[in-house]
Design a protein around this nucleic acid. Structure first.
Lengths: 337, 337
DNA sequence: CTTGACAACGTTAGCGCTAACGTGTATCCT
DNA sequence: AGGATACACGTTAGCGCTAACGTTGTCAAG
């Protein structure tokens, strides 16, 4: 079967330890021997048994990442960003997802810890409910770094997008275009980003002396459709800031299905800049998070934490961007921005 | 730090082996003792060290999956499907991606094998180039199961979508609508699915006595845009079957940018049914692979292979579906289907 | 009362690797 | 010359777990 360190050592008439040192490049071996060993290992196509290595050493060189869901590009991009940084730092990434179920998430966390990952990067689908596990894992010496979603009770180093600022920006954009009746279709309020976006929206409205009008729709296209329908039933809205692009796409469809025009009759601004946002019938104006960068910062934070170089409870918030397309009606120049 | 088997054993005044047996439920322990042990382990929140377990035992309970790219829902869904089945079978999944680089892919394969995964499920970005690694891994007793893409030289058990049949279906659909000048915007011919789709297209055209017209565009929206532009420059096309939905979206945009109408002037059919396909300006008629099912079949094949219950070089091909939307012009009823 | 068979546990010996310390030899300084 | 110093390498002892075999006790058949 596989070749082991010891076999290599026998073939080369050195001790296993020397081979180990040479292959890891930790010094304590003459350059000549090291070269000889490395060459032989390469020819023999030797690969260390990482399970054994991680058992013997403490560090394993693996970060575990758990996201609620891989189907949304947001998570995916964050993971890719984190992975890139981790790889450059000599770490591998073990990726899991919780399918948005707190119970499964607990299991996944334990599975990662059982595999002795060096750190857990977690976008929890329910940070408060799983606060105990997180605490426990921390006590065992495995850093847990939260991202995107935080809870009320859990405070921890983490990386987040500036949801409040992004929501303010979106709302102010609509107000500056001259819309007054600007409503908000909120996301699932169990999640901190949804709450933060509501907050940003409300702040912006208040500052402009406008009355907030909020409807909780939840995430996803269908919820957006329903939420928008109910909003249109109820009263006269000029513009809507939707908490999440998929919902915004649903809202757009609902509006169009009513025979209303976007943005002439109703303006829409989304949040997230998902893959389809630029392609839909009326291209969506939207807030965009720096997804890849968020991931990179996350990976970086993890590496620094492991190196002991991060502040305790370092919290990083990255600013959001804003993409103006057609759904907000800016191109109609109702008012100069 | 963490509690170990031995600690548990001491606390319970039994041998570590008894604890191990009780926790794995392999028998050889009285029901009473087993219950006592399990209860205590649960209260102590004991988690086995999987690295140690995988070192001591042969089986680890992990499948490694490598896909070229996670950004396309196709791969993602396959992974999710495979993961679901694996989980039900008591396996975890270690997910990697090769970023479409053969060299990286080799590394990822070795990394997985180094971690002693029980099997490698691989959608290779270059099956021929990496045939040697695949062979080597197999010789070490780790089954490698290919999916979606196969090479010329590598023949192996695998799971594939019926690309030929799907392409035939799409082409025949267009022909049956009365279009005669049906062109094909091909994908990247290095990959077997692109070649298969060309084949299906050509076969269908020949059978209807129509002349194939193929242009290689590659994958992705930009390539689709360029390919379509060049196609429109060259001559009179009535309909186009595009090898991949993102390219089809690019092609659609190119057509619209020219001031041509879809489907009135040019009909378009895509392949893949990606997330955006239903949302674009003219909703795309497209061939859809049973992504999740492909993944499930893949996971199932892997488990059966590990159980020794699969035939050598079992190859599974799943039929594709077809979604008629607006871009093909079927709703205009040029001809009854 | 043996004998054997079986259940319920314990013991031993690693899996493949690495940390920590030990040994041997050349080199250098006073 | 004697000892300190440095380097190259070997030895020992596990990491936490499990396979394989050993031991003890029990009970029924002969």
């Amino acid at each position: 079967m596989r070749r082991t360190l010891k076999q290599l050592a026998d073939e080369l008439n050195v001790s296993p330890m020397t081979v180990s040192r040479a292959l890891r490049g930790v010094g304590g071996v003459s350059a000549a021997t090291a070269a000889r060993i490395r060459e032989h290992a390469a020819r023999m196509n030797y690969r260390p048994n990482l399970a054994a290595r991680s058992l013997a050493a403490k560090r394993v060189g693996v970060l575990g990442i758990i996201v609620p869901n891989l189907r949304h590009s947001f998570w995916l991009e964050m993971v890719m960003g984190a992975e890139r940084v981790a790889r450059q730092g000599g770490f591998q990434v073990f990726l899991s997802h919780s399918a948005d179920e707190a119970e499964l998430e607990r299991e996944e966390i334990w599975a990662l810890v059982g595999r002795r990952v060096d750190a857990v990067l977690l976008a929890s689908c329910d940070p408060d409910r799983n606060a105990d596990v997180i605490e426990e894992v921390r006590e065992e010496g495995v850093p847990v770094i939260l991202f995107d979603r935080h809870g009320e009770t859990v405070r921890s180093p983490g990386v987040y997008a500036d949801d409040i600022g992004g929501a303010r920006r979106a709302t102010e954009h609509l107000l500056s275009l001259g819309y007054r009746a600007v409503a908000h279709l909120a996301g699932d309020m169990r999640f901190s980003p949804a709450r933060a976006r509501v907050q940003g929206y409300v702040e912006a409205m208040r500052e402009h002396g406008a009355e907030p009008l909020i409807r909780e729709a939840g995430f996803g296209e269908e919820n957006g459709y329903k939420g928008m329908t109910s909003l249109l039933d109820d009263g006269s809205v000029e513009a809507v800031f939707v908490s999440h692009d998929p919902s915004a796409i649903g809202a757009l469809r609902a509006t169009l299905d009513r025979g209303l025009r976007v943005p002439e009759d109703i303006a829409i601004v989304g949040f997230g800049n998902t893959e389809c946002s630029a392609h839909v019938a009326v291209p969506l104006t939207t807030v965009c998070q720096p997804k890849l960068e968020l991931g990179q910062v996350l990976g970086d934070l993890a590496l620094r934490t492991l190196a002991g170089a991060a502040h305790r409870s370092e919290t990083i918030i990255l600013p959001t961007g804003f993409v103006v397309r057609r759904s907000c009606g800016a191109h109609l120049r109702r008012t100069e921005t």
